Amino acid sequence: MDLYEHQARELFEEHGILVPRAEVTDSPKKAREIARGLGGRTVVKAQVKAGGRGKAGGVRLAADPAAAELTARQILGMDIEGHPVRTVMLAQPVDIQAEFYVSYVLDRAAGRFLAIASAEGGMEIEEVAASRPEAVARVHVDPAEGVTSAKAAEIAEAAGLPPQTVDVLVRLWEVLVREDALLVEVNPLVRTTQGRIVALDGKVTLDDNACLRQSRWGAYGEAGDDDPLEAAAAAKGLNYVRLDGEVGVIGNGAGLVMSTLDVVAGRGARPANFLDIGGGASARIMADGLSVVLSDPAVKSVLVNVFGGITACDAVADGIVQALDTVRLTKPLVVRLDGNNAARGRALLDARAHPLVQQATTMDGAARRAAQLATTA
């Protein structure tokens, strides 16, 4: 479960991490009042569970309360990456001396958490990693040992962060562990002209499996809070989770889908979703699945990865063929079939000869091709 920025900053504040004063509203008039209470000049930020807010015009500086009201009116109702903006957060601006990036994320392949940090914050970390990989430090963390002051100092030194960030790195780890999170990210973490270390933005993803022991999580699932595509998928009975990549992923079985996500990431692309069609792949299920995945504007290619067992591959292929008659395929579709009746399934897809459908015989080959199609689109 992803949190909104204002929810993430509340967790940071609870764990002793400095954040700017801020308040959330869904009313432009209330935004004027909040800005007045914050001193007049504010940063107005769209509250959506998606990246790219700044590029989309969802983060703006307002010089005074009247400008804050006007800006909030302009941002509320925007659509950012398929997410409607229902609330905005107004925050006090700070005088920035330097910007950094820090995060902890679960590294499934290594069976440990990974600290990612850079002295070049305030921009997309993927862009920094692509253009200057030496500027991004990656340090694995043993979950049994955690992030002590010594480990935090190691991370800071590897990334070229100032010594003042060590305490924040320890506290961010506390957020990850105590709040049962899979991802904790601050971008940017800044040093102000007064020498304080402040989290200006935050992203937190919670582990849904821990909901039984986190009673307050109920407050995070308010009406209208759901991702619109996740809500549409749930209405169709699909097990779908939206991610932030460009390769749509459909598979049968949670384990296979999770493995597919990792392989796609290993081939230089990011998965756009998790979609498990389970043991059945009827034409309706495939049509519904393709419809939801293709509705994500970030998707550049789709990968269907199926291992035939009780549900044979020819039944899956037949479902895809029939789905192509009802769903307008606008992006390349890479299909990998293996297991029960795989050869027959591949023959059915060959006979359909759809120009946007390609086949691969291995999961790695399919992931590589889907990644190529997505990153060159």
Rank of each mutant, 00 (worst) to 15 (best):
T192G: 11
M363I: 11
V321T: 12
I125W: 01
F12M: 14
L206K: 11
G266W: 02
W173V: 00
M258V: 01
D2L: 11
A223W: 08
I277C: 13
A66Q: 10
A35Q: 06
D225Y: 05
I320P: 09
R41P: 03
T260Y: 02
D338E: 15
R270C: 02
L182K: 12
P297C: 00
K236L: 13
A234R: 13
D276H: 04
E5H: 12
D325A: 15
V304I: 15
Y240R: 02
R108F: 02
A119P: 00
G280A: 08
T362S: 15
R270D: 05
H6A: 10
R328M: 04
A153Y: 02
A287G: 13
F12E: 08
N305E: 08
V166E: 09
D207I: 02
R196H: 13
E14H: 11
D226F: 06
I310V: 14
P297W: 01
R112D: 05
D288Y: 10
Q322I: 05
H15P: 04
L275F: 08
A46P: 08
G111A: 07
D350V: 01
V170P: 08
V139E: 07
G248D: 03
L61N: 06
A117K: 00
D296I: 02
P297Q: 00
P355A: 05
L169R: 08
V147Y: 11
G245V: 01
E185L: 01
G202I: 04
D318E: 12
N273Q: 05
R352C: 12
K331L: 02
V293T: 04
A66H: 08
T87H: 13
G40N: 09
V43F: 12
G54N: 03
A156M: 03
D201L: 04
A156C: 03
M78P: 12
R328S: 14
A367N: 06
T165C: 14
G309M: 04
G54Q: 03
K45Q: 07
V335I: 15
V43T: 06
G280C: 02
E124G: 09
N341W: 05
G309Q: 03
E33R: 07
G289D: 07
T376H: 13
G195F: 09
D180K: 10
V357K: 05
L206F: 09
V85G: 13
G16C: 06
G77K: 04
